[in-house]
């Protein structure tokens, strides 16, 4: 058995799965951001109905497991849409986006609630409409505060994307197990290799988000933070609960 020859020959087979992982992560993150702003604005609304709808959706997707949601989407979406549904990547993006979007919605709501009330009063004094207030003043100020917890969530989403292998989407995790097959040295190599790849992807996300944060903070005339790229994780649920407490 030529170990080195085998594993080297296998490497090109990772090219497509790498892009499936990146696609699911980027697609899922963008969809999650959309969901987060929609639900987050609704959850901070004056109207009880909007708040109620948002809260229900948020609690539902946070309370049920992502793995279950993924399987559930795979079963239910084709049923609900009355079609044979082969694009598992779309389902993966939907499930990842809804799940992490629900967590991110709390981040969005919390950061918006933390904008000082004086800012809102100034908007009133200048006769801004709700959307002008949000677009011109509130969201630009809340955005830098959102980035660190969103960065934590994006890395969680990257890790969560490995679950799509459970519904037979050929991502990195799936490919490593296909190439490994038996519990031997080769399999261990493949798994170790993709662990390193995931770590590098995490690092890239963290670096990118740090860059965004610096830019956003500069946009507020603040000194950007100087930390290493992979900083401490911000516990997302706790962070939002704290913001809720401040809001009261």
């Amino acid at each position: 058995m030529d170990f080195l020859g085998n594993v080297t020959a296998a490497l090109p087979a990772y090219w497509t799965p790498l892009w499936v992982t990146i696609g699911a992560t980027v697609g899922g993150s963008l969809f999650a951001l959309l969901v987060a702003f929609a639900l987050g604005l609704m959850a901070g609304s004056r109207f009880l109905l909007l708040r109620g709808v948002a809260r229900t959706v948020i609690e539902f997707f946070r309370g049920t497991s992502l793995v279950v949601q993924l399987f559930w989407f795979v079963v239910v979406l084709p049923l609900a849409l009355q079609i044979r549904f082969d694009a598992v990547i779309v389902i993966a993006i939907l499930a990842l986006g809804m799940n992490y979007g629900a967590y991110a919605a709390e981040v969005v709501r919390g950061a918006i609630a933390a904008v000082p009330p004086g800012q809102l009063e100034a908007c009133t004094a200048l006769s801004f409409t709700y959307w002008q207030k949000m677009r011109l003043v509130v969201i630009p100020q809340a955005w830098p505060e959102m980035i660190p917890p969103l960065s934590t969530l994006a890395i969680l989403l990257l890790k969560g994307s490995s679950l799509v292998s459970l519904v037979s989407l050929a991502d990195l995790t799936f490919q490593a197990q296909v190439l490994g097959r038996r519990p031997d040295q080769e399999m261990l190599f493949h798994l170790g290799l993709i662990l390193v790849v995931y770590f590098i992807l995490s690092y890239l996300i963290a670096t990118g988000m740090r860059f965004l944060e610096r830019r956003a903070k500069r946009g507020l005339g603040q000194e950007p933070p100087k930390k290493s790229a992979l900083a401490r994780p911000v516990p997302v649920e706790v962070q939002s609960a704290a913001a809720a407490a401040v809001e009261r």
Binding site: I155, L158, K159, G160, S161, S162, L163, S165, L166, T173, A176, Q177, G180, P183, D184, M187, L188, L191, G192, I194, L195, Y198, F199, S202, Y203, L230, P233
Partner: peptide, 15 residues
């Protein structure tokens, strides 16, 4: 912390 628990589990189980 920055790698998926799924892969970690399969890795450790294999090892």
């Amino acid at each position: 912390r920055n790698t998926p628990v799924l892969v970690q589990a399969v890795f450790v189980w294999t090892a």
